[in-house]
Amino acid sequence: MNARGIFREGLWDNNVVFAQMLALCPALAVTTSGTNGLGMGLATTAVLVSANILVALIRNLVSPQVRIPVFIVLIATLVTLVDLALNAWLHELYKVLGLFIALIVANCAILGRAEAFASKAPVLDAALDGIAMGIGFTCALTVIGLLRELFGSGTLFAQASLLLGPRFAFLETTVIPDYGGVLMMILPPGGFLVLGMLLALKRVLDARAAARRRRPASADFSGAET
């Protein structure tokens, strides 16, 4: 598969959340704000890329019968090392992302990509797939987080400077000042509602695109029949 195809798959056609419906637990649990979604997405992307590269590197050495335990051990080790390294050397960032890192172990999307793509692809393709899937996941989480935050507390990217540094303080916007907030959007039901709406939206867009592709072809077909 070429790089273009890989990115198309990761960002839209086979998006981790909106198409594969994997990793819904972190996708719903931490997306109470755009910033949280972004943080979880970035941390996951880092692990996803390194896991994909490792798995692609050893793909010929591993027997199919034991591949799943091997991948799990690798992913868990990787996540723990990332956790330790962040805690030791990027402690400020760790205080913000710490919670998310531990959750990455439970992210089935990483094992899913190792199994479905990286174990059958050359290293470079696997790395690209990790990046593409990671960006797709980050976008999905950020969008869900932003929508829940907007309806739930009337802000966008609140506390983004805690995650990205003071230079990104401009991202923090209050859309509706003195907004009481719809509590439900912050609580778990809000996550399901937003996810459902976004899934429906993606279906509509996909159906439209498919219809557009089909129309000229079917016109030709009917013309030929008459």
Binding site: T77, T80, L81, L84, A85, N87, A88
Partner: peptide, 15 residues
């Protein structure tokens, strides 16, 4: 993991 722990142990303690 053992190496990672040894390398980071001190820095984490300090932090």
């Amino acid at each position: 993991l053992a190496i990672g722990n040894r390398l980071t142990h001190e820095a984490i303690g300090q932090a």
